[in-house]
Computed example of a mutant assay.
Amino acid sequence: IQNYLVNLTAQMTISPQYAQVGVITYSGNTIANGGVILLNSNANYTQLMNAINGLTWTNSTGQTTSDIAAAYHVISNVMLRPAQGWRYGPTFVIVLSSAFNSTLYNGTYNNAEIQHLDSMAHIYGISLNGYGTGSQGFLTHYCQTVVTVSSPTALTVTSATSMNMISAIDSQYKTDRFPPLPPLSSVQADFIFVIDQSKEMLASDFAAIKTFLVTFVMMWDSQNIGINGSQIAVVSYNSQSILTQSSFSLNSYTNGQDLATAIGNLPPILSAQPDSDIAKAIKYVNSYTLSAAQGRRWWKPAFVTFIGVAQNLTNPLDQSQIDMLNANSQTFGFDYFEYPTTFQYLAQITGNIDLVERISDFDFSKPGVQNYLTFVEYIWRDWANSNSKRR
């Protein structure tokens, strides 16, 4: 089963913006210890594959029934919540069952649990041994669609059963309606743009980035900038240091016009060094820019966006600092000159190649910019809908 899940999910793009995968293992009387993977536990396929392979097997010898109702309860009440990564979009639950029957929890088949999960997801059941199917089967009662394989080893990604299920999910996904994204102007968040001003960054390039930032700011009403709306900070750096003369904090400006003017006045700092010290920039953001004294609001989401140009780093990345950054913010990277090495270290920082865009300019019509804006809207919608906001 682990091998099947690894091969099945390999066909997807695993990321917070595309497919997310959760796993729950259960038996006759319990949710298996160490057998739950939350939707937002893994930001890319490699992490997910390792998590699936790390699931522990529970010896249920002698148990012929399973408490599928308890599993449904955990899925709909714990896993399918924004705090655990659920995005209110198309959701598919695939039940891989090997039980002879269902535990009769409270003497019923738990219609309330079934209806609750039905309202949130499409549910497919695969009997791994032929039990629980048919009009009176427990699996048929719990799942909207049920198919059968002769044994667990018969379930492979190329088997007819799996191919038919994938086709059905693909068809259903295309007819589902995504919940609408909020307008970008309604987003309230802390934005930190971290700009590499090493040798590759010419004055004309820096001017183009400032134009992008001003256009970004102007998406909000001027009065929706500040402590009660969105805040923006800029951190510039090169191979030597943080360029404080070309940086400002989140709480530096309280209205859109002043903020746009400040961005326009940021001076380009020309460097003779082709490398950059992004490790120092990350540490600076963690210790300084993301502090309450500089305006960080822990009750709003934070977006840290890197604009990288250097092909080489002055100092190696510090994974502990990267982990701290990703624990406290949503990270995104723009590889401004589309260099493979720049893309590589930005992907390490964000933890996901899908959160790095290769981009030669910041024209708002370009897919790279639109993907970034959609990323912001998705995160804000899920944050705003969550019942467990940090306060």
Rank of each mutant, 00 (worst) to 15 (best):
I1W: 07
Q2T: 12
Y4I: 04
S15F: 05
Y26P: 00
G28A: 09
G34I: 10
G35V: 04
S41T: 09
A43P: 06
N59L: 08
T64D: 13
I75Y: 03
V78T: 14
W86C: 02
Y88R: 08
P90W: 05
Q115S: 14
L117P: 01
S127M: 03
G130I: 06
G132C: 06
G137Y: 00
L139Y: 03
T148C: 05
S150C: 07
T153Y: 13
S162Y: 03
A168Y: 09
Q172F: 07
I195W: 00
D196T: 07
D196K: 05
S198G: 11
D205Y: 15
A208F: 06
I232N: 00
V234T: 04
S241I: 10
L243T: 02
L250S: 01
L266G: 01
P268E: 07
A272E: 12
P274E: 13
D277A: 10
Y284R: 01
V285Y: 01
Y288H: 08
R296S: 09
N312Y: 14
N312K: 12
N312D: 15
D318P: 01
Q321D: 12
I322N: 06
M324W: 07
E338F: 05
I349T: 04
T350W: 04
R358Y: 08
F364Q: 11
S365C: 04
N371W: 02
T374E: 13
R381A: 11
N387D: 11
S388D: 11
S388E: 13
